[in-house]
Computed example of a mutant assay.
Amino acid sequence: MEALQSLFVPTGLVALAEIGDKTQLLALLLAARFRRPWPIIWGILVATVANHFAAGAIGKWVASFFSEATLSWILAACFLAVAAWTLIPDHIDEDEEASHFKRYGPFLTTTIAFFIAEMGDKTQIATVMLAAQYPHFWLVVIGTTLGMLIANVPVVLAGHFSADKLPLTLIHRIAALCFLALAGYAAWNAATLSGWLG
């Protein structure tokens, strides 16, 4: 059961959080510029695995410094912050991420631009927290990577696709509610471990 949660919760959360996120907008921009979907998709995969592996490793490392109860309180606060952050719409300056690297071709440009765009992004922060919460490190990294691909591959394959056609406000609210539920679960777990609930 824990193994399934370590895979499917990160997959669903990141897929939802990524819709309308700046990296999805970046995928749309790259697809429009290069019109070569498969090198872009491979670039997204490589950048995401590298970025989320590092984020997951940090999550596991940080978790080792705290008791289970303290870590649960920290996670509750962090999930609550990410829930609020999810409601803030992202935008991307067309020259901000990809223009500097365009001469490297679609694969390398995508890899570099996505890796940089994910630094400090909410999906990277979520990966840190999920790796700290769930015991199966590799399943969390695979799950968050799958979530990124679920959100971004359709955008790349349909280069004319516009995220504006989706009900972004509703999707962001659902993602925020999911993070809020995780915050509630972490707080309940922390209260139980602290002996507050009997």
Results as ranks from 00 to 15, higher is better:
Met1Ile: 09
Met1Tyr: 11
Glu2Gln: 10
Ala3Phe: 05
Leu4Trp: 07
Leu4Val: 11
Gln5Pro: 01
Ser6Val: 05
Leu7His: 07
Ala15Glu: 06
Ala17Ile: 04
Glu18Lys: 08
Ala31Thr: 05
Ala31Arg: 06
Ala31Tyr: 07
Ala32Pro: 03
Pro39Leu: 01
Trp42Lys: 12
Leu45Tyr: 10
Thr48Ala: 14
Ala50Glu: 00
Asn51Trp: 09
Asn51Asp: 15
Ala54Asn: 00
Ala55Pro: 05
Ala55Met: 13
Ser64His: 12
Ser67Leu: 03
Glu68Cys: 00
Leu71Cys: 04
Ala76Phe: 13
Ala76Arg: 10
Leu87Ala: 00
Ile88His: 06
Lys102Pro: 00
Lys102Leu: 13
Thr111Asp: 01
Ala113Gly: 00
Ala113Ser: 12
Ala117Pro: 03
Glu118Asp: 15
Met119Trp: 14
Gly120Tyr: 07
Ile125Val: 15
Leu130Gln: 09
Ala131Met: 01
Gln133His: 12
Tyr134Cys: 00
Pro135Trp: 00
His136Gly: 03
Ile142Phe: 14
Gly143Cys: 06
Thr145Asp: 01
Thr145Leu: 05
Leu149Lys: 08
Val155Ile: 15
Phe161Leu: 13
Ser162Cys: 01
Ala163Tyr: 03
Leu166Asp: 10
Leu166Ile: 04
His172Tyr: 03
Ile174Asn: 00
Ile174Asp: 02
Phe179Arg: 07
Phe179Asp: 10
Ala186Asn: 11
Ser194Ile: 04
Trp196Thr: 07
